[in-house]
């Protein structure tokens, strides 16, 4: 019995050695609740722009990848403590986050956030604005000094506007497009806010080689135009 364990450990070890940086399987952490970036499809699997992008990046970098979901709240602590190796979850590159983890180059350009409201002529500075707790949008409204109301989930922010609890919701444009489809009463305001940088993949600071591998893969996808095609297909952002 002891021998058996030793052999499997040895096999695991050599398999690990085969990869330059010790990652025989790269675990991709995502949220799975942020359509069209990443979501759980009808079959119960991770799907969306980032699923397709991630699979392509792994193929180009010749890595075996596996998808896992994690709550947004603890997505960074779980990366740094090693429960998965990358975050690919529509995460904007911000200075605060960059201090704790490393990012690859952005795979989508910075995009504005939009407002969804019942009344198209709303003055957002005087209104009550809903946002999800802990997002860059919530921080933005707090910073601006407007009236902010925070909800735990994105659904609740939209529901609050429908119910008249808040006058508008500030969130990522592609998410609000989805919400607008299912509720005809909502309109998108013309005003947009430039917050957050582009979206990139997050990695541990100590994982330089893996980051270089993904960076190279993103560059090659940018160069041959496949990245732009993918962005257009999923309508997540503007193209490069």
């Amino acid at each position: 019995m002891k021998n058996l364990i030793l052999t499997t450990a040895a096999v695991a070890l050599t398999a690990g050695m085969a990869m330059a940086d010790g990652h025989s399987v790269v675990r991709m952490g995502t949220e799975g609740a942020y359509a069209p970036w990443n979501f759980i499809n009808d079959a119960g699997e991770v799907d969306g722009f980032e699923r397709e992008l991630g699979d392509e990046l792994c193929a180009r970098a010749e890595l075996t990848c596996e998808w896992v979901t994690n709550e947004w709240d603890s997505i960074i602590p779980n990366l740094t403590s090693g429960n998965y190796d990358t975050i690919i979850a529509g995460m904007s590159i911000t200075d605060e986050r960059d201090e704790v983890i490393d990012f690859t180059q952005a795979y989508t350009p910075p995009d504005p956030s939009s407002y969804l409201a019942m009344d198209g002529s709303l003055d957002v500075e005087g209104g009550v604005i809903a946002a999800q707790t802990g997002t860059i949008q919530a921080a933005f409204i707090a910073e601006a000094g407007w009236t902010l109301v925070e909800f735990a989930t994105p659904e609740e922010t939209v529901a609050a506007v429908v119910a008249g609890e808040a006058d508008a919701v500030l969130a990522d444009k592609s998410f609000l497009m989805t919400a607008m489809e299912t509720n005809g009463d909502l309109v998108m305001l013309e005003r947009e806010e430039m917050i957050g940088g582009g979206v990139g993949m997050g990695l541990r600071e100590s994982d330089g080689e893996l980051r270089a591998a993904f960076d190279a893969a993103i560059t090659s996808m940018k160069e041959d135009g496949t990245l732009n095609a993918m962005i257009e297909k999923w309508e997540v952002a503007s193209t490069w």
Partner: peptide, 25 residues
């Protein structure tokens, strides 16, 4: 369930805020 207005929340809300900002729970 209940929303936090103008970032006025209870102890867990602020603990969550700091855990979120410092990435250190």
């Amino acid at each position: 369930g209940f929303p936090a207005w103008q970032q006025r929340g209870d102890a867990l809300y602020y603990a969550n805020y700091f855990a979120d900002k410092t990435f250190n729970p």
